[in-house]
Every structure is written in C-alpha cells, then in structure tokens.
Amino acid sequence: MTQAAAMMSPLPSEQASAAVPLPLKVRGMTVSYGATPAVFSADMDIAPGAMTAIIGPNGAGKSTLLKATLGIIPRLSGQVEVFGQPLDRVRARIAYVPQRASVDWDFPTRALDVVEMGLYRQLGLLGRLTRQHRSLARDCLDRVGMADFAGRQIGQLSGGQQQRVFLARALAQGADLYMLDEPFAGVDAATEKAIIDVLKSLKDEGRTILAVHHDLSTVPDYFDNVFIINRSPVAAGPVATAFTETALQSAYGGRLATGLLDQLFPSAGPAPMPQPFPTLDA
C-alpha cells in the first residue's frame, strides 16, 4: 500500500523512493554507436503508476535510451535499476513493445501465436502451453480489440492492427512496467484510441508506462510526466512543470513549427525565434 502513497505525487520525493524502489532508475547512461555518442550521461527516474513520455527531436536518442535500458543494445556506461533490482532479476515485470520495423513480417506466425510468445519466458524451455495459456492470450487480444483476427498471419494485418497485437503480447506477460517504442507511429485513429485506452486502464491498475512519443500535441492529453532528451536529458517531471516552451525549444532548437508551439502554449504569445547558440556540430 506504500505504492499507493507513492502514486499520489507525480514524482516521488527522496524518502518515498527510499521506501518503495522506483519502477525504473537510470544513472549516468552513455550509449554510443562506434565513437559517436547517441545518448550521453542520462539520469532518469520513472514514477510508479504514471504514464511518462520520452520526447525529443529526431536522432535525439529516444529509442536508443529505451533499448539500452532494456539491454537490447549494449551501453558504454551507466546503471539501470528496475524496481530496485538489476534488470536480469526482474525481467518478468517488464514488458516491451518494439517499433514495428524490428519484425520479420513474412514470418509464419499468427496473431495469437505472437501473443503467446509473451508467455514463453514463464513457460521456460519445456513447459507446455495449456488451454489456460491459450485463453489468456485470447483475452489479451480481446482487450486490444483484435479477437477477430487471432488466426491471421501477422504480415496480413494493417500497421495499426500489428501494433495492437504487440501490445497484447506485452499484456500477456502481466508486467508492472510497460516500455513502448513509438506506439502511435503510423497507426490509424482507431488504433491510437484503442492503445491509449488500454494504457490508461493499465495505469489505473497501478502499473507504470514509459513510451517514446513523437507527437507533441497529444502529450498533455495522454501523459502525466515527460522526459525530454536531446542526447542528454533536457528536462523531466510532470507535464505541468516540465513540458514548457523553454524546454522544448532548447531540446528541438529551430526544428519546432511555431504553429505547434502556439497551439500548445496559447498564452505565451508569438514564440520568440530560438537564439542561435554556437554549437559544435552546427
């Protein structure tokens, strides 16, 4: 029940995090491709029972941060703690929804089989897939509105439907921390709604959601917290305090459409042109 207490405040204070370990705590993470750092010296605290968006410009290292956190790609330095423990101890409590591009679409597998892959870890090498497992997988498909497509080969589904199947696979794990890489990229409106509904219901169950997100205009509607990154963290915290025009401009530089800024921050008046800082890579 201390978890409920922690959920009250968007970002738990130091003493709360001492009582209940954070779902995710990253310290000093640097990830590089060759000698080019993609993420540099990132600290990240993810609050429990909330939805956090990782945002930042293209090439800012959003997906890299997520993947390195999960150990999909190696990190050069840094520590990751999940629920206060090293990653390998708590794999079962983390579910990952990859970007759709990472999958072999011609693979002989049906929507239901994909969801069942979410159960493979707990089945182990020899465990038998029982009728209970199968009906659990069906329930997960149902929850994302894909029950009618259980027998369809994965490549024959639309992009939005595929994304929903991957969310169902994550649901099958019954995890406490959900990490999603651009779940709304290139999906139809119906899928976007289905996904956000499921994520919100997960949050209501007290689970934690962390998503790489690209559409700034939906951030205030969908998320509680933001983590703004441009190779290194720029700002982090509740949307109300961290999702500011200043933070966005320093992360995105001149790459933000002023129309979007006006729409997000109507009271601020016309957005000033970003100051041309001398930068090394300019």
Partner: peptide, 21 residues
C-alpha cells in the same frame, strides 16, 4: 526440441527476445 521457443522468438523479433532474457 529444447531450443524451439528461443529460436522462434529470436527469428521473429530479436529485440523483443532480448527483453525476455
């Protein structure tokens, strides 16, 4: 027979397989 699930998972979606340990 022993490796069938790991091999299937890695073949289909190696990134997800990595998150599963």
């Amino acid at each position: 027979l022993l490796l069938r699930r790991p091999m299937t998972m890695v073949s289909f979606d190696a990134e997800y397989a990595a998150t599963q340990g």
